[in-house]
Lab assay of single mutants.
Amino acid sequence: QSYDVTDELPLPPGWEMTFTATGQRYFLNHIEKITTWQDPRKAMNQP
C-alpha cells in the first residue's frame, strides 16, 4: 500500500475509519448515517 499524506490528517467531525472483516478500509459518517469507501479527507483537499 502506498503512503498518502492524507492518512495523517484528522477525519472531519462525525466520521470514523473502520475495517471490514477482510481488512478493507471504509468510512462511517455518524451524522449523515452513511458509509463510503472514499476517504472524506481527500475530498477536503481538492483544489
Rank of each mutant, 00 (worst) to 15 (best):
Q1W: 10
Q1Y: 09
Q1K: 15
S2A: 07
S2K: 11
S2C: 08
S2W: 05
S2I: 13
S2P: 04
S2G: 13
S2Q: 09
Y3M: 15
Y3Q: 08
D4L: 09
D4Y: 15
D4I: 08
D4G: 08
D4C: 15
V5H: 07
V5L: 10
V5M: 13
V5Q: 09
T6E: 08
T6S: 13
T6Q: 09
T6A: 08
T6W: 07
T6V: 12
T6N: 08
T6L: 10
D7S: 10
D7V: 08
D7M: 08
D7N: 13
D7E: 06
D7H: 15
D7P: 06
D7L: 08
E8Y: 07
E8D: 11
E8K: 14
E8T: 14
E8M: 15
E8S: 12
E8Q: 14
E8C: 09
E8I: 07
E8W: 01
E8V: 10
E8P: 11
L9D: 15
L9S: 14
L9T: 15
L9W: 11
L9V: 15
P10I: 08
P10N: 09
P10R: 07
P10Q: 10
P10T: 13
P10F: 06
P10V: 08
P10L: 07
P10Y: 06
L11I: 06
L11E: 02
L11G: 02
L11W: 02
L11C: 05
L11Q: 02
L11T: 03
L11H: 03
P12W: 01
P12F: 00
P12C: 02
P12S: 03
P12R: 02
P12V: 00
P12K: 01
P12G: 04
P12N: 03
P12I: 01
P13A: 13
P13C: 07
P13E: 13
P13Q: 14
P13D: 14
P13T: 11
G14T: 03
G14P: 05
G14E: 08
G14S: 05
G14F: 04
G14M: 04
G14D: 07
W15F: 06
W15V: 02
W15P: 00
W15L: 01
W15M: 02
E16H: 02
E16K: 06
E16W: 05
E16T: 08
E16I: 07
E16Y: 01
E16S: 11
E16L: 06
E16Q: 13
E16P: 01
M17P: 06
M17Q: 15
M17C: 13
M17S: 10
M17K: 08
M17V: 12
T18S: 15
T18C: 14
T18W: 07
F19E: 14
F19P: 03
F19R: 11
F19N: 13
T20K: 01
T20M: 06
T20F: 00
T20D: 12
T20R: 03
T20P: 00
A21E: 14
A21G: 12
A21W: 04
A21H: 10
A21K: 13
T22K: 11
T22S: 12
T22E: 13
T22W: 06
G23V: 00
G23I: 00
G23M: 01
G23K: 05
G23W: 00
Q24R: 07
Q24A: 10
Q24K: 09
Q24E: 15
Q24F: 03
Q24M: 04
R25A: 07
R25H: 05
R25W: 03
R25Y: 07
R25Q: 10
R25M: 07
R25P: 06
Y26H: 05
Y26R: 04
Y26N: 05
Y26A: 05
F27G: 03
F27H: 02
F27E: 03
F27N: 01
F27Y: 13
F27K: 01
L28Y: 07
L28A: 09
L28P: 02
L28E: 04
N29R: 02
N29E: 00
N29Q: 01
N29K: 01
N29H: 07
N29I: 00
N29L: 00
H30R: 11
H30W: 05
H30S: 11
H30C: 06
H30A: 09
I31R: 12
I31N: 09
I31S: 08
I31G: 07
E32S: 13
E32Y: 15
E32M: 15
E32P: 01
E32R: 14
E32D: 12
E32N: 08
K33L: 03
K33V: 01
K33C: 08
K33T: 04
K33R: 12
K33H: 08
I34S: 09
I34D: 04
I34M: 09
I34R: 07
I34Y: 08
I34W: 12
T35Y: 05
T35C: 07
T35P: 01
T35Q: 03
T35R: 04
T35H: 03
T36I: 01
T36D: 01
T36W: 00
T36N: 02
T36G: 02
W37Y: 11
W37R: 05
W37T: 05
W37F: 12
W37C: 04
W37G: 04
W37N: 06
W37S: 06
W37D: 04
W37A: 05
W37E: 07
Q38G: 07
Q38K: 13
Q38Y: 11
Q38D: 09
Q38F: 11
Q38R: 14
Q38S: 10
Q38N: 10
D39H: 08
D39K: 02
D39Y: 02
D39R: 04
D39W: 02
D39V: 02
P40E: 02
P40T: 01
P40V: 02
P40S: 00
P40A: 02
P40Q: 02
R41W: 02
R41V: 04
R41P: 01
R41C: 02
K42Y: 09
K42P: 09
K42G: 09
K42A: 10
K42L: 10
K42N: 15
K42R: 10
A43H: 09
A43I: 11
A43K: 14
A43V: 13
M44R: 12
M44V: 12
M44L: 14
M44E: 15
M44S: 11
M44H: 11
M44C: 13
N45T: 13
N45F: 10
N45M: 13
N45I: 11
N45E: 10
N45L: 10
N45C: 11
Q46N: 12
Q46F: 15
Q46Y: 07
Q46G: 12
Q46I: 13
Q46A: 09
Q46C: 13
P47C: 00
P47T: 09
P47A: 12
P47N: 01
